[in-house]
Design a protein around this nucleic acid. Structure first.
Lengths: 220, 220
DNA sequence: GAGAAAGATTAAAAAATCATGACAAATATA
DNA sequence: TATATTTGTCATGATTTTTTAATCTTTCTC
C-alpha cells in the first residue's frame, strides 16, 4: 500500500511535492497520466490520491470516478481551472478537498497532513527510521510493516516517546509489567534484544536502542 | 444533536446560510460569538461546526481548540483573513476544511455536503473486495450477495468502518453485545471464525480479518 | 590484567491466547 | 408446535508470546 499516489503530468511539480512528502516519511508514487495512475492504484492501493484534473488523454475525473467508485480512498484534487463548476463537480464526486494551482507547498502539506490525521487518525510517532501508529498498532520501517508482539510494541513505544532520555530498567519494567509483576527484570533484557534484532541495522552494534550502563536504556 | 452549528457574528450572512441548509433538511443553530457557540456545542453536540475565525471577544481558534480537543467533530473554517498563516493554523488544529469570505454559497453547500457524505453517510462501505450496504443490510462479494447473520453483519461492518485500525476484543464485544452482556468474550472468536469462512479466500490464512495478538482484530 | 558486576545471548519451558469443531440453547420462521 | 436458523458454550489442540535459566560477553574497578 502506497501512502500517497500523485497523479500529475507536470513532472517537476510532482517531484518537488514528492520530495517534501518523503521527508515526512510518507511513501509516495508518481503517475504522469490517468491510465498509469489507475494502474498503480489498482495494483498497490493508496491511502491518499493527489489528483491533477488536467491531464493529457483521459482527465482526472476519470480517475476520480474509478477511485471513489470502488473505495473510500480520500482524493485531493489539484486544479488549474478556477471555474466554480469544476470545484463543485470534484467535491460532488467525493473528493475530500481541492487546492488550486499554483499552490503553496506549505498549505498543500497541511492539507495532506489533515487528511491523514482525520482519516487514519494517525496517532503517529515518527523518528526518521520508524513510524509507529498506536491506533493501528503498526510499526513501519521504510515501507514495510514490521511484526511486533505486544510487549515489544509497548516497550518500543515507551522508549521512542522518551527519545533521547535514559529510562531506568526499573522504570521500564514497572511501566510495562507493573510493579507487582512476578516476572524477573531479566526478561526486559531479552525483550530489548529481540527489539534490536528487529529494528537495528546491526543488532550487535545498536545505534537506536542504546544501553546506558548501570541504569537502563535510551532511544536515539 | 444539532446537525450544523454556525458560529458567526454576521447575523445576515449566517441567516442566509442557515436557510439554505434548512432547505436541505439539516437542523441548524446559530451562535453569534465564541462563548455562545461553545455553550450550544457542549449542551447539544453538533455533527459539523461552521466556524468564523474573526469573532468579537474570544476568537474562533478558541472554539476550534475546544471542539477538536475533545472530539472528532468536523469543523469548517470560514475566514475573512487571507493570510496564509491563518489557513495553516486552522488546518493544523484539525479543521476539516476552510473557505474564504466572501464565499459562494454553492461552494459552501458543496463543501458541507461533502463533509457529511464522507463523515456520516457511509451508507455504502466499499473495500475492493466487498460492498456493504448498511440500509438493506446486504453484503456483496464480487457480484454475488452473501448471506450474513445479524451479528456477523454488525461485526464485519464495525471492522470495515475502522479498516486498518486494530480494535480490541473488549471494544468489539462491548460495541456489539453491550458491556452488560452475559455472553462470554469467547463468543467473539467464534463469530470471527464464522466470518472468516465467509469472506476469506483461505480461512486458514486470513488476509482480511487479521488477529492482533493479545489485543484484538483488524480488517485490512 | 584479574575479578566482579552488568548486560547479551541462546534455547527451551511455561504461560497466554487463539482457532476449531461439536453441541446446546435461544430465537426466528413456517 | 415443529423446524430451521442463529447464537452461545465448552473442551481440546495448536500457535504465539513470554519467561526462565544457564552461559557467554562486555564493561568497570582496583
Amino acid at each position: 500500500m502506497i501512502d500517497i499516489l500523485i497523479v500529475e503530468d507536470n513532472k517537476e511539480l510532482a517531484d518537488v511535492l514528492c520530495d517534501f512528502l518523503r521527508a515526512e516519511q510518507y511513501t509516495v508514487s508518481i503517475a504522469q497520466n490517468a491510465e498509469k495512475g489507475l494502474a498503480l492504484y489498482e495494483k498497490y492501493g493508496a491511502r491518499l490520491v493527489v489528483l491533477d484534473l488536467m491531464l493529457p488523454g483521459k482527465d482526472g475525473y476519470y480517475v476520480l470516478e474509478k477511485v471513489r467508485g470502488g473505495s473510500n480512498t480520500p482524493v485531493l484534487i489539484v486544479s488549474a481551472k478556477t471555474a466554480k463548476d469544476d470545484k463543485l463537480t470534484g467535491l460532488d464526486l467525493g473528493a475530500d478537498d481541492y487546492i488550486e494551482k499554483p499552490y503553496d507547498i506549505d498549505i498543500m502539506l497541511a492539507k495532506i497532513r489533515g487528511i491523514f490525521k482525520r482519516r487514519y487518525s494517525l496517532d503517529e510517532l515518527i523518528d526518521g527510521n520508524l513510524r509507529i501508529n498506536k491506533s493501528n498498532r503498526t510499526i513501519i520501517k521504510g515501507d514495510t510493516e514490521m511484526e511486533m508482539t505486544g510487549k515489544e510494541f509497548e516497550l518500543l513505544t515507551l522508549l521512542i516517546e522518551n527519545r533521547g532520555r535514559t529510562l531506568s530498567k526499573e522504570y521500564l519494567f514497572n511501566t510495562i509489567w507493573g510493579s507487582d509483576s512476578d516476572s524477573e527484570q531479566q526478561t526486559l533484557t531479552v525483550h530489548i534484544k529481540r527489539l534490536r534484532e528487529k529494528i537495528e541495522k546491526d543488532p550487535k552494534k545498536p545505534q537506536k536502542i542504546v544501553t546506558v550502563w548501570g541504569v537502563g536504556y535510551k532511544y536515539l
